[in-house]
Write a protein that binds this DNA or RNA. Structure first.
Lengths: 211, 211
DNA sequence: AGAAATTTGTTATTTTTTTCACACTGTTAG
DNA sequence: CTAACAGTGTGAAAAAAATAACAAATTTCT
């Protein structure tokens, strides 16, 4: 397999989640149009994505839920699992920890960091909180590959630098402040304000078009 | 102006945020490649986006920060402002409220909802918390157009239905569960797990390529 | 058994988004 | 004054992503 499109990667992750729910319900097979409906996309797109990863369903029966989950796992998960840290134990950081707590997954949140002494030393949902000053030590020690930044915007740059220095390989930045990383580090930025403004924009547009 | 591409809308929102920071610093002009660098995109793309909204800069001086901020506002903001509600006062809901608190913006969070009696009646950062049962009353009353869903996944569907029934026009779903809305409601879903899995995937890929 | 219906897999097409290439124009240096 | 430079604006091309169209295969119906 050469290059999976970026968008396909995202969708595979989403398909898997939908499929896991189906599996829990005891559903053994699923049609492309069922997956499509859940994800608000077209059935063709689902089939194309699955074609790209080389999975073929059963004609008239659809896709085998269990098999597909496993295949997606082989594609997007890494063999050994990946350790993740959350930097910034504010509301957002805590939300993420709860989110992930107890989820079977190859992604394990193994540490969190904060500068607030009241938080350092505590454990939340099994995740210990360390001082941000110790990132340089803990990150290599625990073999942490990915960092999720949920610090206040004003600390975004310095936190990024510290993460990079500590040898992190990927950063997911939830700070509203864009940061810069060397090209060997994969960076994904997500900005809640942008999403909200986008929704507002299209709401406005819909209203206008109704007139 | 006909149709701005989806992606352009998102970027405009981001440009504006970067520009606001520049403005605060006292910077009066900015080059396309400076904006580009902040957003990790190319200068051509910035120029093209600005072309699409009909803004023209000054040759050799770049773009006037203040003017551009205002123009972007005219394009993406709505005249009257838009009222927003947060449904689910868990960690994520609180994170969002803090995020927006005190931000000058045409988007105003005017209410939050929860089912926990301890939270109902409280005010956080100036935002009152109501019972989820009262959405049908409060949403029209306060003219709330957009709802941000930060409830646990298992309540996603029923919350969506209640929002739609209450007359909401746009939903931003932070729940990991995809929901369905009638087509006159604009829906945006964002899934943190997908983002994290994507980062992990590309980290893995980078490591493989290094071999 | 044959026809109708349904669903997959894939090629071709279209649409959307990004990038290239370059004309144009002030600005600065000599 | 002129040449080199550094920026903008934009048509054209390329790349990425989504959609359409349809053959093939299996099930169901009659």
């Amino acid at each position: 397999m050469k290059h999976l499109p970026h968008k396909t990667i995202e969708r595979l992750s989403q398909y898997r989640r939908a499929l896991l729910i189906c599996l829990d319900k005891g559903q053994t097979h699923i049609y492309s149009h069922e997956i499509a409906k859940i994800q608000h996309i077209t059935a063709v797109q689902v089939r194309r994505d699955l074609m790209l990863i080389g999975y073929t369903g059963t004609l008239r029966k659809g896709y085998n839920v269990k098999e597909l989950i496993e295949l997606i796992g082989e594609i997007i998960d890494s063999q050994e699992g990946i350790n993740v840290a959350i930097i910034g134990m504010g509301n957002l950081g805590r939300a993420l920890i709860n989110y992930f707590a107890g989820k079977r997954s190859h992604l394990k949140i193994v540490a969190s960091f904060d500068i607030n002494p009241d938080k350092i030393g505590n454990t939340m949902s099994g995740v210990p909180c360390f001082s941000s000053d110790d990132m340089g030590k803990i990150i290599p020690e625990k073999n942490i590959k990915v960092g999720i930044m949920t610090v206040p915007a004003e600390f975004a740059s310095q936190t990024t630098d510290a993460l990079v220095k500590a040898g992190i390989k990927g950063i997911l930045n939830y700070t509203p402040k864009p940061v810069t990383v060397p090209k060997e580090v994969y960076l994904e930025e997500y900005d809640m304000i942008t999403s909200l403004e986008k929704v507002a924009f299209y709401v406005k547009l819909n209203e206008k078009e109704e007139e």
